[in-house]
Design a protein around this nucleic acid. Structure first.
Length: 508
RNA sequence: GGGCCGUUAACUCAGUUGGUAGAGUAUCUGCCUUUUAAGCAGAGAAUCGCGCGUUCGAGCCGCGCACGGCCCA
């Protein structure tokens, strides 16, 4: 315990007085029969026929503001459906209840019963006949006008952020709606929602460094999943031809405005489809979600209007590099010139990518990240990814150097990644071995060999296409949020001092 | 990992050249039965993120650390 503030002491004292008067500060028997929305809907429906006696409402909520006038007061209270004003008069609620009411604070929960009237200024207001304390708050709330702004406090005490900042509330309501819309979209298309392991003996399905955990009784190290991909494809092999999962992935990498170590991913797989089908499906899905969530075909993100309806531009990686990145086509075929070009632009190519013998895939995708990606504001599918950066994708029939794969970019962010699945077990094995070589060379993000997955493929996976979509980044788009922390309820933070100490002593 | 910025009352923020800390809101007391950032009168409230240093003297200058934000890797 660090600070005991004067303001909290005062409140504690008041609480002690209430207890002495046998006031139950935390009752659990107040029966709520109306929400604020019910009240507003009734006003909408009945209008002029409303009197102070009829109809009568019983509502409850947190007191957000109080204007006291001696023997009468206005309060504003809030429930999950909205905020409403109530008027508490001593001669209406009685001396005893009004005396109790005078002891209450902003932040307390109250139960209210009464009819409706219109104030001088024309605002419909609950005329309280009965008032009960439903829950006492022991701490002072942030100031009503400026609210809670300090980002560190907002993230650490998200509950206060949600109470004080309505735009934050709206963001998370929106996020929930996005996920529900996606779920509906898939369910009506005969996809089945599944859950696959979060703890995996071999981490796979993506190129990333995993978190390691340990199972005591099995004496076994396990990895928090970096992707569900290989398990979802096992389900396709098992006969679930259309599956999707919306769940958390964990990647042991830095934290930034676009990265949280745990993040939410949608992955879905459809048998007898290819990557082109999925591009069409993605357009349909985004168009549907946008209409459901934003109520139109477009959204505004960081000042740009983004058209989410209709069909989107499709171009290959090389086309994008030439046309948008302004890179000469001949350059793209020459490894040394590519490296020179990158260094002349101050683009750092990692050692493992530049030293690697053979393909130029990693150099090219890096150039793309820097020179093209930020410019892809309107939704754009990029296709033609090199085989070496796509270890799980099916090789293109027309060009053996590339795969049947796309990525989707919106507002300069990678939003989705999809491809026709590699279902030839022997080739998959060769690809894994290639990755293993890179792993041995020090690339911690290279894909792991997964023998069990190869065996599964050997039983036969029908032609299938699959896709992953970052839900957090999607939520950022709809919420017009510049940072991923604004769309994750409890983003990861370093523990604040004493919490870290307490946690370590807990383990010892 | 690097650069820049921030951390002062419950909240939002000021704080001059280095001279023992200010406002608004919130809180407390009194008045007030149609307010809505209510009003009037009064009062209380600060380990200036933490540590070390410089100095007669540090919120302010220096060094280190912690946490956070933005940008870069």
């Amino acid at each position: 315990m660090k600070t005991t503030s004067n303001i909290i002491e005062q409140r504690r004292k008041k609480i002690a007085e209430l207890k002495n008067k046998d006031v139950n500060l935390f009752p659990n028997d107040f029966a709520v029969s109306h929400t604020v929305k019910n009240i507003r809907d009734t006003i909408e429906d009945l209008q002029d026929s409303i009197t102070e006696d009829n109809p009568v409402f019983v509502a409850a909520g947190r007191m957000m503001a109080v204007n006291r006038f001696g023997k009468a007061s206005f309060i504003r209270f809030r429930d999950r459906t909205g905020q409403f004003q109530a008027y508490v008069r001593k001669d209406n609620v009685g001396d005893e209840a009004y005396a109790l009411f005078k002891q209450l604070d902003i932040g307390d929960f109250v139960g209210l019963k009464g009819g409706l009237f219109k104030t001088k200024t024309g605002e419909w207001t609950l005329l309280v006949n009965e008032l009960k304390l439903v829950c006492k708050s022991m701490r002072p709330f942030p100031e009503k006008f400026h609210g809670l702004k300090d980002p560190e406090k907002r993230y650490r005490k998200r509950y206060l952020d949600l109470i004080m900042n309505s735009d934050v509330r709206d963001t998370f309501i929106k996020r929930s709606k996005i996920i529900q819309a996606i779920r509906t979209f898939f369910l009506v298309r005969d996809f089945m929602e599944v859950e696959t392991p979060m703890m995996q003996p071999v981490p796979g399905g993506a190129e990333a460094e995993p978190f390691i955990t340990h199972h005591n009784s099995l004496g076994l190290d396990l990895f928090l999943r970096i992707a569900p991909e290989l398990y979802l494809k096992r389900l396709v092999i098992g006969g679930f031809e259309r599956v999707f999962e919306i769940n958390r992935n964990f990647r042991n990498e830095g934290i930034s405005t676009r990265h949280n170590p745990e993040f939410t991913m949608l992955e879905f797989y459809q048998a007898y489809a290819d990557y082109k089908d999925l591009m069409n499906l993605t357009e349909d899905m985004f168009s549907y979600v946008t209409r459901e969530v934003a109520g139109s075909d477009s959204i505004v993100y960081q000042g740009s209007t983004i058209d989410m309806g209709g069909r989107w531009r499709r171009m290959t990686l090389f086309e994008a590099l030439e046309e948008i990145g302004g890179i000469d086509a001949d350059l793209l075929k020459n490894r040394e010139r590519l490296l020179d070009f990158a260094s002349s632009r101050g683009i750092v190519i990692t050692k493992k990518a530049s030293e690697k013998i053979g393909g130029t895939g990693k150099i090219i995708t890096k150039l793309f990240d820097v020179m093209v990606e930020p410019k892809l504001i309107q939704p754009t599918f990029i296709t033609g990814y090199p085989v070496e950066v796509s270890p799980l994708s099916r090789r293109s029939d027309s060009d053996p150097a590339i795969t049947d794969r796309f990525e989707l970019f919106i507002a300069g962010h990678e939003i989705a990644n999809g491809f026709s699945e590699l279902n030839d077990p022997d080739e998959q094995k060769v690809r894994f071995l290639q990755q293993a070589t890179e792993r041995d060379a020090g690339d911690k993000e290279a894909h792991c060999m997964d023998e069990d997955y190869i065996e599964a493929l050997e039983y036969g996976m029908p032609p299938t296409a699959g896709e992953g979509i970052g839900i957090d980044r999607l939520a950022m788009l709809f919420a017009d949020a510049a940072s991923i922390r604004e769309v994750i309820l409890f983003p990861h933070m370093k523990p604040a001092g004493n919490i870290a100490e307490e946690a370590s002593s807990l383990l010892n």
